[in-house]
Amino acid sequence: MILMAMIYKNRYAAFNLQVHLVFITKYCRKVLSEVHHAYFSECVAEVCKSFDAELKECNGEADHIHMLIQYPPTVQISTLVNNLKSVTSRRMRSNFIDLRAAYSKPVLWSRSYFAGSCGGAPLNIIQQYIQNQQG
Rank of each mutant, 00 (worst) to 15 (best):
F51G: 15
H36A: 12
H37E: 12
C28M: 09
C28Q: 11
S41A: 00
H36Q: 11
E46H: 03
C28I: 10
T25G: 03
R29H: 08
S41I: 00
L21N: 09
F40I: 05
L21Q: 03
H36T: 09
V44W: 04
K49W: 03
E46D: 09
L32V: 10
K49E: 10
I24C: 13
F23S: 10
K49L: 14
V47Q: 00
K26P: 02
V44A: 00
Y39F: 15
C28E: 08
L32R: 02
V22W: 04
E42K: 03
A38W: 02
V35P: 00
K26E: 06
S50T: 13
H20D: 15
C28W: 06
V47G: 03
T25A: 10
S50C: 10
I24H: 07
L21R: 00
Y27M: 05
V47L: 03
V47A: 04
K30W: 11
V31G: 00
K49T: 12
V31K: 01
E42R: 03
K26F: 00
S50P: 14
C28Y: 09
F40V: 08
R29S: 13
Y39M: 14
H37M: 12
Q18M: 14
V19E: 11
V47H: 02
R29M: 05
C43W: 01
L21Y: 04
S33T: 10
E42M: 01
H20Q: 12
C48Y: 02
A45S: 15
